[in-house]
């Protein structure tokens, strides 16, 4: 598999925050969810990919090419959706095309107009009149109209209602029916990723704590529940995010450790939120 995006040992230091040795790669043809709390380093990473920030060290390859040496070529093939539009609010959607299209060699005006129709976006509307969901769709329409091969979306779902989030997931799945394309998609809303993401990368305090397939991650752990006092102290130590309450306990356990548990416990498949909360991939206890 060829990587459409490859970060190695990316480092960027700020006064109060630093991104440390961030490495991960996304093979082409897949969707990667980039998960972390607010302030974990998602946007910094994305800005480094887009050369909106200068890195201290490390390397970024997009389509196998260095993102700085081949900047023009690389940027032309990346479609970007940020959490707010980078367009002038007073423009209507026709003005937008006139202003943006000269920047791209492959601008396809027919496609832009078709997409606006598909997304029910009215060309005569001004950008400031669009709802948040419509703005996200507009940014996607722009990205697809210049025939981007890699979509990078920074928190595209925040502030979107369930219907729009679902539509967005459909658009992304549709996008990667072409196996030469790829999507990197940052979010703190994990349910968006529950179904469509092929890969998950967790970032916490500027460091990558997991990067791999979503299935592998979800199969690694199980949610475990049981009555009070059924666990020996040695058994309890195996449970991540152990929580005891008046009528029992719950937590997360590595699937391979299940045989160490008493028969009275119940267990069930976990979801990304369980992992995020229990292993504290957002905190310090993750080993």
């Amino acid at each position: 598999m060829t990587n459409i995006l490859e970060l190695s040992n990316l480092t960027k230091k700020f006064d109060s925050f630093s991104l440390n040795n961030v490495s991960f790669s996304l093979p082409k043809g897949f969707i990667m969810g980039f998960i972390g709390h607010n302030g974990a380093g998602k946007t910094t990473t994305i800005k480094l990919i887009l050369d909106m920030l200068k890195k201290d060290s490390g390397s970024i390859k997009v389509f196998g090419k260095d993102n700085l040496i081949y900047k023009n070529e690389v940027m032309e093939r990346i479609g970007v959706v940020m959490d707010s539009t980078y367009f002038v609010e007073e423009w209507n959607l026709a003005d937008l095309e006139a202003s943006v299209s000269p920047f791209y060699k492959n601008w396809n005006s027919k496609k832009y107009n078709d997409l606006l129709d598909d997304f029910y976006l009215d060309k005569s509307k001004k950008i400031k009149e669009l709802s948040r969901g419509m703005k996200v769709k507009l940014m996607i329409a722009v990205a697809l109209s210049h025939d981007a091969d890699l979509l990078i979306l920074d928190e595209p779902t925040s502030g979107l209602d369930a219907v729009s989030r679902n539509e967005l997931m459909d658009i992304l799945s549709d996008f990667i029916t072409d196996e030469n394309k790829g999507v990197l998609f940052s979010t703190h809303i994990t349910t968006d990723l529950e179904r469509v993401a092929d890969f998950i990368t967790f970032i916490n305090k500027g460091e990558i704590v997991y990067s791999g397939t979503r299935e592998e991650l979800l199969e690694k752990y199980l949610v475990i529940k049981g009555g009070r006092g059924v666990l020996e102290p040695s058994q309890r130590e195996l449970i991540l995010g152990y929580r005891e309450h008046s009528v029992g306990f719950d937590g997360l356990i590595e699937a391979s450790m299940l045989r160490m548990m008493p028969e009275s416990v119940v267990y069930e498949p976990c979801n990304l939120d369980d992992i995020l909360v229990r292993t504290n991939m957002g905190g310090n206890s993750y080993e």
């Binding site: 043809g29 897949f30 299935e215």
Partner: peptide
């Protein structure tokens, strides 16, 4: 159905269908 089409139709990940 192709792997990617099926993934799209069922709203699941490509890796799941591939598997």
């Amino acid at each position: 159905p192709s792997i990617r089409q099926l993934a799209k139709d069922l709203q699941i990940s490509v890796i799941t269908t591939m598997r």
